[in-house]
């Protein structure tokens, strides 16, 4: 009887533990909202996200440069990473010989495991000088290299392993028969990939990209190290920018003395939270649906 009782108690405890971990999401969301609420007493949401005027000490909190900076950097990262990731993952799952996988998978593992601060160092040592000395002189007179473009490049390399592993997983879920059917109709391998595999998995690929975007949104240190951090909306790729996570990271320690500052920074965190929530849930929904379809 003792064993049975133990089983019941354990079940109860595990249930509470599960419930507690789930409620953490709600708790964080509510906490961030409550903390950022005071700023809404003085400014409307529209005012906050449409103004480019950021002067915390005089009570001006315009988030536009930060939101703009985040969007720019994320956009560049995805545009750069997507073709590479797509081609590599098609190559890995449809075309390559075993020895290719033997080289690329460990490389991807390393890429995924490298800490973001190391990406930042790499960005400073290699990407920033390259942008400033090689690329920028073709377009503008002077650029430090600490720019939106550098941020985008570093971020693009960082989301590569995530994108590729998601893509490979999605391609692997496509039934063999589908491939064989296309191949036996006389399609080349590439045509099969292009016309059958890609088309069939498009929703899944989109979902994967959204997941990668939500990961890119929150990346802090590496981007902060190479993007210049000037709170102005960038006009060109070679201008500095200031993404939301960098804003929080750079100012969180000193915010206590300025009124509303904490509230504003919490709002920035809340923005990130909401974006992640929406992107994650919707892309998961698509992926679940897709998995069920193929099963």
């Amino acid at each position: 009887m003792n064993r049975i009782l133990k089983n019941k108690i354990a079940a109860g405890m595990m249930f509470s533990l599960t419930l507690a971990s789930i409620s953490l999401v709600v708790l964080i969301g509510m906490g961030l909202y409550l903390k950022s609420a005071p700023i809404f007493k003085e400014h409307s949401l529209w005012e906050l996200i449409s103004s480019a005027d950021w002067q915390p000490s005089s009570g001006k909190f315009g988030f536009l440069p930060f939101i703009g900076g985040t969007l720019w950097i994320t956009g560049i990262a995805v545009i750069l990473a997507l073709p590479v990731a797509l081609l590599t993952s098609i190559f890995l799952s449809e075309h390559s010989k075993p020895y290719v996988k033997k080289w690329i998978f460990p490389a991807l593992d390393i890429l995924a495991g490298i800490p973001s601060v190391v990406y930042g160092v790499w960005g400073i040592l290699l990407v920033v000088p390259w942008v400033s000395e090689v690329l920028a002189p073709h377009f503008v007179e002077y650029a430090t290299g600490y720019s939106t473009l550098s941020g985008g490049i570093v971020l693009g390399v960082m989301i590569l392993p995530l994108l590729i592993s998601l893509f490979v997983e999605i391609f692997a879920a496509v039934p063999r028969d589908l491939r064989d059917a296309a191949l036996s109709l006389g399609a080349t391998r590439w045509q099969t990939s292009k016309l059958v595999i890609l088309r069939k998995t498009l929703p899944g690929l989109l979902a994967a990209v959204m997941l990668a975007i939500s990961r890119a949104f929150g990346e802090t240190i590496a981007v902060l190290m190479v993007c210049g951090n000037i709170p102005l909306l960038p006009h060109s790729l070679f201008d500095s920018c200031y993404p939301l996570p960098a804003l929080i990271a750079n100012n969180y320690g000193e915010m206590l003395s300025v009124p509303m500052y904490e509230s504003a920074l919490m709002l920035a965190a809340f923005f990130l939270f909401i974006v992640v929530l929406i992107f994650n849930t919707s892309s998961r929904a698509v992926i679940y649906k897709l998995e069920r379809k193929f099963q």
Binding site: S21, I22, R215, G218, L272, V276
Partner: peptide, 12 residues
């Protein structure tokens, strides 16, 4: 919920 938690940036 764990998927969402997985996505929440560490800065948050």
């Amino acid at each position: 919920a764990f998927d969402v938690m997985f996505g929440i940036p560490s800065i948050v």
